[in-house]
Each structure stands twice: as structure tokens, then as C-alpha cells.
Design a protein around this nucleic acid. Structure first.
Lengths: 108, 108
DNA sequence: TTAATAAGCAACTAAAAGGTTGCTTAATTT
DNA sequence: AAATTAAGCAACCTTTTAGTTGCTTATTAA
């Protein structure tokens, strides 16, 4: 359906998903779906859907144990986002003079 | 309605908008709406909507001249995204050993 | 001064997103 | 074995998103 980088951007474009992802990143152990749900004012099914999207983007991995599905964050795919941004970063990394001149040329 | 970082992420989450933004970044001069539209298989109104979203996110600036609205990219807001990612980058910047141990502790 | 061009606005449509409720299944406790 | 708990699945609803068509307005060119 959609390419990886789009999946990735869409995954982190939702504030709730950023919150879930963050909660998993700072967690000291993997958390079950229910444990995650308890931290949010949303039904477990709602959280499950978000987790699925994060998982499809590679940002959350699972670990099934009996009736539990322990989730943990995997920030590595964010490197792709970093890579995407690297090209554009040259335009803010450049000296302000150069950027100023560039913008002036477009404005004037 | 929604916070800046969310607007920013949503703006770049759409592939067409990333394409428009990229076209403006690499353009040697500011481009009118019509000039941009000609590069995409989409109506001018469709492009206008995308431009509006990019503009709301601060990624595209305008420059009205008569009946033309010349648009140019402003990548600076992407620094916010960069900042957001910096926190998570520690988890992929760390030595593989440390990351491995962290994951093992969650898996095991 | 009539043509043509650039773009805005509004209404509409189709599909996707974000979320819910209700029910089922499978694994654990008691 | 019965009750509880964790989670999946499907259907549904509402809002947002991505895009269209049609029309108007304002600027510029012939």
C-alpha cells in the first residue's frame, strides 16, 4: 500500500502514538497491551490499533508470552527519518548569510 | 487545533506534500501555484490545498506579486523534528552491545 | 477593451483514520 | 471445573483527508 517512510511518518504523526511510543521507550521492561492501555484514556482496542500501526512501521516489536503480548519500542527505524532530513538540513546548517541570500533571491 | 510538531509531522507524512516540498527546495527560484501544479498529475486546487497545509506547518512561504503567488520552501521548521528525534537517537547511537542487552532484558 | 491567465472559494465525494461496542477465544487462577 | 483475565476480531460511527468540479474575481496581455 504505502512505502516505509510514509508509514513511518504517518505512525509518528499521531500524538497518541508518539505518546505510546515514548512510554515504551522509557519503560524499563516490555509492557502488555493492557498495561499500556491503563496509561491512556482510551479503550484497549483503540490502543491495540495504534500499536498495530506502530508495529507496521517497525517502531514497536512484540513478544508473545501466553495470553500476554509484551510490547517494546524499537527506535531504529527513525534512522530513516533522520536520513530523509539530512538532505534538507543543509539548508538550515548553512551559514545564515547564505540562507539569507538564498531567500532574498526568491523574495526579490 | 493541533500543536506545531503534529502539524509538521502530518505535513510531511503525505508523499505528495513531500514531493511538492522537495520540488520547492531544489527549485532555483520561487514557483507560482500553477508552475507547481504543472509538475503534478493533480488539479491546481488539489495542489493549493497541499500548499496551504505546508504553509500552516511553516515549511512553505509565499510571496504575492500581482496575480501570482510565488512559493518557496523553508526547511527551518524541520529542526523541530530533528529535535524531537534527538532524544530517541540515543537508542540507536548507543553501542550495539548496550542496545542488545537492553532488548535481551525485555525479551528474556 | 476584450482575452486570457492566476488563483480563490464553496460544495461535494470517496476513502482513510481514530475511536467505540459487543462478542469470542485462549490462557490463567482459584 | 468455574471464574477471571488478556487479547483478537468484526461491525459500526464520526471526523478528517485527499481530491474533484464549477464558478468568481482580479490581474495582465493583445
Amino acid at each position: 500500500m504505502q512505502d516505509n517512510i510514509t508509514k513511518l511518518f504517518k505512525a509518528i504523526a499521531d500524538p497518541t502514538r508518539r505518546d505510546i511510543f515514548h512510554a515504551l521507550v522509557i519503560a524499563t521492561s516490555a509492557l502488555s497491551i493492557t498495561q499500556i492501555s491503563n496509561q491512556f484514556e482510551m479503550t484497549r482496542q483503540g490502543v491495540t490499533k495504534h500499536i498495530k500501526i506502530l508495529n507496521d512501521a517497525g517502531l514497536v516489536q512484540m513478544n508473545e508470552q501466553g495470553r500476554n503480548r509484551f510490547c517494546y519500542a524499537d527506535p531504529k527505524p527513525l534512522q530513516e527519518v533522520n536520513k530523509w532530513m539530512q538532505f534538507y538540513s543543509q539548508f538550515w546548517d548553512d551559514s545564515l548569510d547564505k540562507l539569507g541570500g538564498y531567500l532574498d533571491s526568491k523574495n526579490g
